[in-house]
């Protein structure tokens, strides 16, 4: 496996669009060609070689030194692996359709928004709109999985259509806002207004909550599906440990009935 490493030469002077640094787009290029690629910096452009020291060989894996001013890291990733040592800026992994993006630090706004496939792992915290919908898009995430070890901001999984989001820590307000389908697992505590406007899909967490009035309490149930899901998680890498073991008896709320929805909130005991 060939690894291509990008090490920052110094502090960034503005926000960088790092979306061109995808393994499958760089694999056929020589190091000198990659160093000459333009990256958007604010309103202008800067060459990759001016910002980063490059080492290794272009191939399946890109290693990137992280910075919270690096936006669009892994956006549009279709295959291969990107490992980021440190944090990333906004919209990391947006529109991913395959491959794996591992962020060892925190992620900014709209990480994994409109994701279609692949795997996004954030070992730190994630900002608002995690796995949400990009502006103008009717659906949010339509496939793949997002695994966040820390907490996340508001509106995680907004308009989600398919796929899995697992958050190890707490979520902000309006998680799964207008969710259409898919699964959102919360290892910590869910924030306010969870599932507002959801039409279908599953939100799974631990402990009782006081949901919005649009949710009908269907009482305690023992669902074999939860064991199937937990078995599925056991086969994946980097699942937040707090998202495991969400099995056994669970209280089920059905809603959001104010929107004709029949999604579910499942609160494991």
């Amino acid at each position: 496996m060939s690894v291509l490493s990008f090490r920052l030469k110094g502090p960034l002077t503005g926000r960088i669009d790092a979306s061109p640094l995808l393994p499958h787009r760089l694999a056929e290029l020589a190091l000198s060609e990659i160093a000459a690629l333009p990256l958007r910096l604010g309103r202008g452009h800067v060459a990759v070689g001016d910002l980063f020291d490059l080492s290794g060989n272009p191939g399946d894996i890109v290693e990137l030194e992280g910075d919270e001013r690096l936006d669009f890291v892994g956006a549009g990733l279709a295959g291969g692996i990107i490992r980021v040592a440190g944090p990333v800026g906004h919209r990391a992994g947006t529109g991913m359709s395959g491959g794996s993006l591992l962020v060892e630090g925190a992620a900014g706004l709209a990480a994994g928004a409109s994701m279609q496939g692949g795997e996004l792992i954030v070992r730190g915290d994630a900002g608002n709109e995690l796995g949400g919908a990009l502006p103008g898009e009717r659906a949010g995430m339509t496939g793949g999985r997002i695994l966040v070890h820390g907490t996340c901001g508001d509106r995680a999984g907004e308009r989600m259509r398919r796929g899995l989001i697992a958050i190890g820590g707490n979520t902000g307000a309006y998680a799964a806002l207008h969710m259409n389908a898919g699964s959102l697992l919360i290892g910590g505590r869910p924030g306010a207004f969870i599932g507002h406007g959801m039409r279908n899909g599953t939100i799974l967490f631990r402990g009782e909550i006081d949901p919005l009035p649009g949710f009908a309490d269907c009482g305690l149930n023992r669902l074999p599906f939860l064991s199937l899901l937990d078995n599925h998680l056991s086969g994946l890498n980097e699942v937040p440990p707090a998202c495991r073991g969400l099995t056994g008896r669970a209280r089920r709320w059905l809603g959001d009935r104010g929107f004709g929805g029949r999604g579910e909130l499942l609160a494991c005991l």
Binding site: S183, N200, T202, F225, H232, G235, E264
Partner: peptide, 8 residues
Amino acid sequence: QQMSKLLC
């Protein structure tokens, strides 16, 4: 009232 889940 049925629901589906897509796993792997």
